[in-house]
Design a binder for these strands. Sequence first.
DNA 1: CATTAGACATACCGACCAGTATGTATCTTT
DNA 2: AAAGATACATACTGGTCGGTATGTCTAATG
Lengths: 205, 205
Amino acid sequence: MGLYRNIMTSDADETRQALLEAAYEEIHHYGFQAAGLSAILERTGVTKGALYHHFSSKLRLGYAVLDEHIAHQLETLWFTPMRQPGHPIDVLAEVIRQVGEHYRNEEIALGCPINNLAQEMSPIDDGFRRRIDNLYRQWQESIANLLAKGQREGSIIDSIDADDTALFILASLEGCMSMAKNAQSHDKLMRCGQGLMSYLNSLRA
Amino acid sequence: MGLYRNIMTSDADETRQALLEAAYEEIHHYGFQAAGLSAILERTGVTKGALYHHFSSKLRLGYAVLDEHIAHQLETLWFTPMRQPGHPIDVLAEVIRQVGEHYRNEEIALGCPINNLAQEMSPIDDGFRRRIDNLYRQWQESIANLLAKGQREGSIIDSIDADDTALFILASLEGCMSMAKNAQSHDKLMRCGQGLMSYLNSLRA
DNA sequence: CATTAGACATACCGACCAGTATGTATCTTT
DNA sequence: AAAGATACATACTGGTCGGTATGTCTAATG
């Protein structure tokens, strides 16, 4: 006892989660390649042996962060709120507003975790690229479904293609985050979001 | 003779430009941090001593790539074509079309050089961030001026704010590039661009 | 003609970093 | 109770990378 952590109160899964969380933070700050394992270990108090017991390589740790932590975050921040009832544009507007709130001034400078990884890793690692592609596909689908439902209900104009429009909305969203990130300005996010909102309103039937 | 390059035919400025070009390529591929000086030296055949004669550090080399190479590229690819005569939306559409052509299938997977650097470097280095901020400001202004001119001429609706709209257009543009980059699909760039085009057309008076 | 400055070339260094080898304590199974 | 298997801990290694110290060749300058 003493030399090793108490397995009764802190089991293997908690260690794994702690690593995932810390890795996420480091990656979000510095990107995947620049994220150091040493920083992740310091953050968690976990040793290198423990890390390599749970993950076979830094790459696998990165994949796990995407597959588990980031996917979960996308679920709670987007997919769940998106299932609210109401006019599709109102729902979308509300979700965007909530996300805008979520990214307060300090965090806005770190940008969207998914877009960060996409920009950095997709040209050099297909494992990252495919995982991100899947997330984007789900994301786009969730918007497209909302639009298509609106079209069936007559609350969204019929002249647009739901898939293409969803793609453009998603792209604009990421673009706005990108601009705000570089400007390190929450205000810029809001102003850019206004542009998106006026576009969205043009889709009402 | 022979040990050193002939200063008659290849002067210092050519060496500098070669370094800038090679550094740009490496950075565009792998990002600034992951770009290795060794690769830049191999590409150019220049030695480390020469590199450090022209640039005091890797960071300064990166700044120079932004200040000179990328700024120049933005000028020829955007600002110059933007000065064509015609209806603002037509001009914008034509420039976007040309840029879409420019990013052929292989290159689309590398994304927009400016956005790449913005995502990677702006949270961790203010020198990069400010330089990119300036480029984006110019870029946004060039679009805003076009829109404002259209408003004065009566070819663009009066109800929009030229600056905010330009910001959103720029954000959408970068967003589309981002999506296409991760999907590694020129087709996705085109489809996303269609969404942007239909938004732009809604701005006609 | 001597000196100096510019433009490189070569060799080397210390830091860092992902990954590994090995040891050890605890839990589970037989 | 013996024997794996699990979940770590510690120490170390090999390689890469940015940066530097120092030397050399050439062109211009006084």
